[in-house]
Simulated assay, not measured.
Amino acid sequence: MNKRTAQVAILTVTLTLMAPAIGGGATPHPDPTIDPVMVTSGFLSGHPDLRFRLLALQKRSEGKQTAAFEFFMRAAYYGDKPSAGMVAEMLWDGTGTPQDRAQAYAWMDLAAERGYEGFLDLRERYWAKLDEADRERAIVVGQDIYARYGDAAALPRIARALRFEKRRMTGSRTGFTGNLRIVVPAPGGGTEEIDGSKFYDERYWDPVQYQQWHDAIWRKPRVARVDIGEVRQLPQPDLNTRIPQVDPIPDDPGQELPPTDEMPLLNGNPIRP
């Protein structure tokens, strides 16, 4: 696969989640990050995976590639597979980070961990371009990446974040009940009210339903097929990873990036938590 073709494909996949629906089959629940009322109401405070991906895309659009790479890493730490795919792409090209194609493969393998078709395809195209030495190293470094960023480690993190923020905002372990109205800062100034049933939709806060929502969007994403040079047809990718299963590494604050309160911009202004 031509390098530019891969770039177009992965970027199209990544931006798909910014649209409210995916064509074909049942329509997934809309992405709350496209609703400015939802994101200004503190929604992103409880969804660090989405917050850091939006920050990464913002930094990338501003030409701040190193910062974009770091924010994609943060999002992947909370199980965001599109961000893992972008970490892979940036490692493959040496954008915002030194080029390392063995690590790039391992990260794309991680992006494909849940069987998302677009990332499986790109994983196999990466593998086809690696020499034997890089393939061997990819398997080795991939084990450490999976131990820290694989679903066995990452899904409990995002589950804790979802539950903590929902309890904090509702003041109850039982979650939202009743005719709750939430007053939030409006995108153009002033305030607006939203129905609590929208904000606290279980698909956004229950860890199992939250992952099912992601799966509905990413299982068969719209990946652009752009012809730039010769593209060799590859076999249907195997769903299985080449990287041996490893135990997750317990969270070690000393090994992670420093915390940040930075929020994405909305209409040029920072989103308030």
Rank of each mutant, 00 (worst) to 15 (best):
I139R: 14
E132D: 14
Y146N: 10
A128Y: 04
V231F: 08
R51A: 01
Q143I: 05
R53L: 09
E262F: 03
P185T: 06
A161Y: 02
R137C: 04
M18W: 02
G63C: 08
A186F: 04
H47C: 02
R232D: 09
L120P: 04
R181M: 13
S197I: 06
D227M: 09
P20S: 12
S172E: 05
K64F: 04
Q65L: 15
L155C: 02
R135V: 04
Q209G: 11
I243Q: 02
Y146K: 11
D252M: 07
P82Q: 04
W205L: 01
T14I: 10
Q65P: 00
E193Y: 02
G171Q: 09
A88S: 15
P32L: 01
L17I: 07
G96L: 01
F72Y: 15
P250T: 03
D238E: 13
D109R: 04
R74T: 03
W218Y: 15
P273A: 09
A133E: 14
E192M: 11
G190A: 07
Q236F: 01
W205V: 00
Q212I: 00
Q209H: 11
G196L: 05
K166V: 11
G63K: 06
H47P: 00
V141C: 13
R163I: 15
T170I: 12
I158G: 03
A9Q: 13
D144I: 00
V39F: 05
Y126W: 10
S83W: 03
L91R: 10
V87R: 03
A9L: 07
M73T: 13
L17P: 00
P185D: 05
K129N: 11
Y146V: 08
M1G: 12
R242P: 01
K220T: 14
L110C: 06
G25Q: 10
A68V: 02
L257V: 04
G94N: 05
G189S: 03
L11V: 06
V141G: 07
F176W: 13
R168A: 15
Y210S: 08
A161R: 03
K59R: 15
M73D: 09
F164D: 15
R163D: 14
E89C: 00
L257R: 08
E256K: 11
